[in-house]
Design a protein around this nucleic acid. Structure first.
Length: 531
RNA sequence: GCGUUCGUAGCUCAGCUGGAUAGAGCACUGGUUUGCGGUACCAGAGGUCACAGGUUCGACUCCUGUCGGGCGCACCA
């Protein structure tokens, strides 16, 4: 819609015209402050210019009126335009809001270490990434969701040690002491038992086999991780194991040329020259690669696979890491502008108003799967998708748990369910409804129709700005408009019943499409809660 | 200290590339159709947009500085 309007205005004025949404619908559907910017060059007051411009629009198919108010130019879309678009949307439901973007995008997110189940802090990045993924798919991008599995390095050794120690304590009944850095948690029980079953009890006491133990256990942990993601309707297309990349190390180092040098028996990357604070060690004296080394080979591999654009979603605690990876990408001979790293801010927990620190040692980690079980995937996804991903988010655990009807997701679900109920109460068939015209809905009806038809712009905007919270915001507003309309206007039994039902079908389409992009299924009925 | 990010209603957060009277949910107060699910709707109250300058016809939005919070500042991942 907006594209049509702005294309028309561009043609008329011979320049790009800023289009905005008026604060108040009484001003029209779209507005532009163009008269203000023209005021200087034309040496006339904005009011006069706006007047002249407004009167230059006489008859138009798209607009029913163009008015000037206090220097603004306000456009009102015509009934014909809105009703035609509404008809089109209902006839092409699966195409509604879709586009034909062609770019190939690689989206990497979550990528939590395979050393334990996901906790609540991981959920935010997971929801953010998956929502972007769904939006991109809808817009036609060829996008791949990828999980980078850090199955090399100290943390994997630590996983092996942790399982062995757990087994020695609980299976071999030895008395042991847990060093602070070791992993703790219920999941170790199944892994330790599984290990004994597969390798025999000896492995628990055989230090030389801990590596073997860890590599086996990592797959088990990944299963837990993938399961908990599936509960949130999140799916990955590809998994890349860090351990599989190092065989390529010599070739990749060769590609970096001057970007890599040796000093003090270590290998360094000259990242300072590319905007980092310091040069960084890539290979230690003893030959073990650092974490950065893995990311260098990984990003090289990403670029060699050939995408138009790369998106990484990292926790905000990794933000200092961005210049290093960008430096590496440039030394590898690729355009670092194609690599976009988005940060998902920390989620800090409060319990009864007091900061609540999760710690693996204390064993008080809040698992993502527990929260999903408690409040449901829909509610959790909605909460995280509603917040701008780059602001730190705080919530009270108690508050979080009691999110029931106060959670806006139920408000939106109810709007959708309400429409289904009305439809089922009506005697009109789908055919009758589709055969009627969306014209003559009246002012409130046209306004609701316009709101519902706004979805495609929201999708486009939410994805291109990477601000997924725009979609939940829109759905809340649309649900609110629907509830208000329902309250103000009787539908069943009126002369306009069929066309009003058709209007509701358009609203339901937008709600359903929007919710599915958030990974939430629209409900046809709400289940009443028993007190 | 350096970097980065944020500071908007009692709380949790929106506010699009600068634009019309700064918005929503929760909580609070008061109302609602002899009608489709009241899990709704309406109204009220609640703000010096952290502070101070600057740019502009116009600043919550851009720039500079100050104060305050988060996160980084590893040869850990």
């Amino acid at each position: 819609m907006k594209q049509r309007v702005s294309a028309l205005l561009r043609e008329k004025f011979g320049r790009e015209v800023v289009l905005e949404k008026p604060k108040d619908r009484a001003f029209g559907h779209f507005a532009t402050p163009i008269a203000f910017s023209l005021a200087k060059e034309l040496r006339k007051s904005p009011m006069v210019i706006a007047q002249d411009l407004a009167s230059s629009f006489n008859e138009s198919e798209i607009f029913s009126s163009v008015e000037s108010v206090k220097g603004y130019l306000n456009f009102r879309l015509s009934e014909e335009f809105l009703s035609e678009y509404g008809d089109w949307a209902l006839q092409n439901q699966s195409e509604f809001g879709k586009q034909e973007k062609k770019d190939k995008i690689l989206l990497e997110f979550v990528s939590a270490n395979p050393t334990g189940p996901l906790h609540i802090g991981h959920a935010r990045g997971a929801v953010y990434g998956d929502t972007l993924y769904r939006l991109a798919k809808h817009l036609g991008y060829d996008i791949t969701a990828e999980y980078y599995v850090n199955d090399a390095g100290n943390q994997i050794d630590l996983l092996g040690l942790s399982i062995a120690l757990y087994g020695r304590e609980n299976i071999l009944k030895e008395s042991v002491e847990y060093p602070e850095s070791y992993y703790r948690g219920e999941y170790l029980e199944a892994l330790a038992n599984g290990a004994v079953e597969k390798f025999g009890k000896e492995i628990l006491s055989d230090e030389s086999r801990y590596k073997e133990l860890a590599l086996w256990a990592k797959d088990g942990v990944m299963e837990i991780v993938v399961d908990s993601l599936r509960e949130l309707n999140i799916h990955f297309d590809t998994f890349v194991n860090e351990s599989s990349l190092y065989s390529d190390w010599d070739r990749v180092m060769g590609k970096m040329g001057d970007g890599i040098y040796k000093k003090d028996d270590k290998v360094w990357i000259a990242s300072e020259a590319k905007g980092d604070d310091n040069d960084r060690v890539v290979v230690r004296e003893d030959g073990r690669p650092t974490y950065l080394a893995g990311d260098i080979v990984y990003h090289n591999q990403k670029f060699e696979r050939g995408y138009d654009h790369y998106i990484n979603i990292w926790g905000a605690d990794h933000h200092g890491y961005i210049p290093r990876v960008n430096a590496a990408v440039e030394y590898l001979g690729y355009d670092s502008n194609k690599l976009e790293t988005l940060l998902s801010q920390m989620v800090s927990l409060l319990k009864n108003g007091e900061p609540y620190k999760m710690s693996k040692r204390a064993g008080n980690v809040i698992l993502m799967s527990d929260i999903v079980e408690e409040i449901g995937s829909d509610a959790l996804r909605f909460i995280f998708a509603s917040k701008k991903s780059d602001t730190a988010l705080e919530f009270d655990l108690a508050e979080f748990k009691k999110q029931d009807s106060s959670n806006p997701i139920f408000y939106i679900q109810y709007a959708h369910a309400r429409i289904q109920t009305i439809l089922s109460k009506s005697n009109f068939s789908k055919e009758d409804i589709n055969a009627t015209s969306l014209k003559g809905l009246g002012e409130n009806g046209d306004s609701l129709l316009f709101d519902a038809l706004l979805l495609p712009e929201i999708i486009e905007d939410a994805f291109s700005s990477r601000q997924v919270q725009k979609l939940p915001d829109y759905l809340k507003a649309l649900a609110s408009a629907l509830h208000k309309f329902y309250y103000d206007c009787r539908i069943i039994g009126t002369d306009d019943e069929a066309k009003l039902l058709k209007l509701l079908l358009v609203v339901a389409l937008s709600l359903k499409t929007g919710l599915s992009l958030l990974g939430i299924e629209a409900r046809d009925r709400m289940v009443k809660e028993e007190d």
